[in-house]
């Protein structure tokens, strides 16, 4: 199964491999194939990034979310159907030069990459992928809401065990490719929100964070209209704050080796 698929001569082999990979995943990772979405009920939620100065709950409307992050195989399929998103065709304004740089060629992936979450994708590319599924990237609050769950509780954030599990993942050295999707489902039925990759959100360029809350005076007033940069409400929640710090440092054309994405869409039967 391992080894790099050659770009030219491997067409037949590729389809054979794909069949094998398909059978393999049918046996083991059924939800990965169908790009399944699960409905997530709405609710009130205390975000670490509130919308106002007073820490009111953020109201989350119901939405449907992809069970797992998008895989290399799924993204390859998208790129083949939408060649303007090939790494050798994409306009530079949408993706920096390292875009999909972990693939052996512009239109092939290694067998071992099939079920790994796609990384090295820009926000624009992730957004275009989701649009191809009649979906969009989740908003930060939507992502934070579902990521607060553990296997049995919808909000496990106050449990030190929840925090420590995530922080121990962060502490693992990165640099190697992420493992395949298919981790334990959380209380909503969503997998791999923690443990494999970090994920793009639709409003990554809304997460203006003041480095220090004492900066809420003139400098912010000059830079940000309205209420100034956000204050974080829950400073103990490093696990979530690290995500915000990372996302807020990115530009839309940036790619990184541990940043992937998943999509959301309206719940079944809802108006789009």
């Amino acid at each position: 199964m391992a080894g790099i698929v050659p770009g030219v001569k491997g067409a037949a082999r590729r389809s054979g491999d794909r069949l094998a990979a398909t059978l393999f995943s049918l046996a083991w990772v059924v939800p990965a194939l169908a790009a399944d979405y699960v409905d997530v009920p709405g609710g009130a939620f205390q975000s670490v990034l509130p919308l106002a100065e007073t820490p009111l709950d953020v109201v989350i409307k119901p939405f449907a979310m992809r069970v797992e992050p998008v895989t290399n195989r799924e993204f390859l399929d998208f790129v083949q159907r939408n060649p303007q998103w090939r790494r050798d065709k994409v306009p530079a304004i949408f993706s920096e030069s390292r875009y999909l740089g972990h693939w052996p060629s512009a239109d092939a992936i290694a067998d071992t990459q099939s079920l790994q979450p796609v990384v090295m994708v820009s926000w624009f590319a992730a957004q275009a992928y989701c649009e191809s599924e009649n979906a969009r990237l989740p908003g930060w609050h939507e992502w934070e809401y579902v990521a607060a769950a553990d296997a049995t509780r919808s909000d496990a954030r106050t449990d030190p065990a929840w925090r420590n599990r995530i922080l121990s993942w962060y502490a693992r050295p990165s640099g190697s490719a992420p493992a395949a999707i298919g981790g334990e489902a959380n209380a909503y039925g969503l997998r791999d929100l923690h443990g494999l990759v970090w994920e793009w959100v639709d409003d990554f360029n809304a997460l203006m964070v003041s480095a220090d809350n004492r900066e809420q005076g003139d400098p912010d007033l000059m830079k940000f209209c309205g209420a100034g940069a956000l204050s974080m409400q829950d400073r103990d929640n490093y696990a979530v704050l690290m995500r915000i710090a990372m996302l807020s440092s990115l530009e839309g054309d940036d790619v990184t080796g541990n940043l992937g994405f998943r999509c959301v869409r309206p719940v079944t039967g809802a108006a789009p």
Binding site: L51, N205, L207, K223, F224, G226, A227
Partner: peptide
């Protein structure tokens, strides 16, 4: 490369 977010009171926080 412009950052913005909608606030609860209808205002926007944004870079200029």
């Amino acid at each position: 490369g412009i950052q913005y977010r909608a606030l609860d009171d209808g205002e926007f926080s944004h870079s200029s």
